[in-house]
């Protein structure tokens, strides 16, 4: 088992999930509650990675972050090294590619919150941010959890963008799925089987836990 690849994959998934949840909360709030028509355009852009071939996104990141572009030079100054073929570049690619997995469940969750509760909060003096943090998000916490699980799981299984942006540098950019690809290419099927089984098991357990969570609701108590 390639433990370096395993640890790198977990670090990448955790970093991507943390960053995406921070970005997804305001984005989902805009998509759920904004009344402007621009919201629809934003919604389409957020959904783009669902249909875009990962290699296309990887290609544009590769070109965009090359030292020949202003963006690439700025990123190099910011991180102290070029973004392509680095862990930071891998994170940027993962954040963009997993964006809909974080935003869409949370948007649906926020939209399902009873609007009368948000109106009540407003008449009790709560502004938009307080309504989001104190009412909408706690009531949509299962959607927030779904966003986190889906983002983490999707990042663990990411291949196309990771390969295009990061290549396969051991300990730096070689994730489990890239390691699996390399092993198969070199006909090392015994070890490839272990990694494939690990990825299959992880994804299955995560999704079964997510989908069966509503079967185990938490009870309420009543003071006597």
């Amino acid at each position: 088992m390639d433990t370096d690849a395993l640890l790198l994959t977990l670090r990448l998934a955790a970093t991507t999930t943390a960053l995406l949840l921070l970005a997804a909360i305001p984005l989902a709030a805009v998509l759920a509650y904004a009344t402007t028509r621009w919201r629809l355009l934003l919604e389409a852009l957020v959904a783009l990675p669902l249909v875009l071939p990962p290699t296309v996104l990887g290609f544009y990141l590769l070109v965009g972050f090359s030292p020949l572009t202003a963006l690439g030079r700025t990123a190099s100054t910011l991180f102290g090294h070029q973004l392509v073929f680095s862990f930071a570049g891998l994170v940027v690619g993962s954040v963009l590619y997993s964006l809909p997995f974080a935003v869409q469940p949370l948007t649906a969750g926020l939209r399902s919150v009873d609007p009368r509760l948000l109106e009540a909060a407003a008449t009790l003096g709560a502004g938009p941010l307080r309504r989001l943090l104190r009412v909408a998000l706690p009531l949509a916490k299962s959607s927030l959890l779904a966003s986190a699980v889906l983002t983490f799981t999707h990042t663990v299984g990411e291949f196309g963008v990771a390969l295009m942006v990061g290549g396969s540098i051991p300990g730096v950019t070689r994730t489990l799925s890239i390691s699996l690809y390399d092993l198969v290419e070199n006909a090392q099927f015994a070890e490839a089987r272990h990694i494939a089984l690990l990825l299959l098991g992880f994804s299955t357990v995560a999704l079964v836990a997510l989908y069966t969570a509503p079967l185990f609701p938490r009870g309420e108590r009543r003071a006597s």
């Binding site: 009368r116 008449t123 502004g127």
Partner: peptide, 16 residues
């Protein structure tokens, strides 16, 4: 609404 200092109690209590 949140800047009006007007409290509103609906027929169906919208409790959190």
């Amino acid at each position: 609404p949140h800047r009006r200092s007007i409290a509103f109690v609906a027929q169906t209590p919208s409790l959190f």
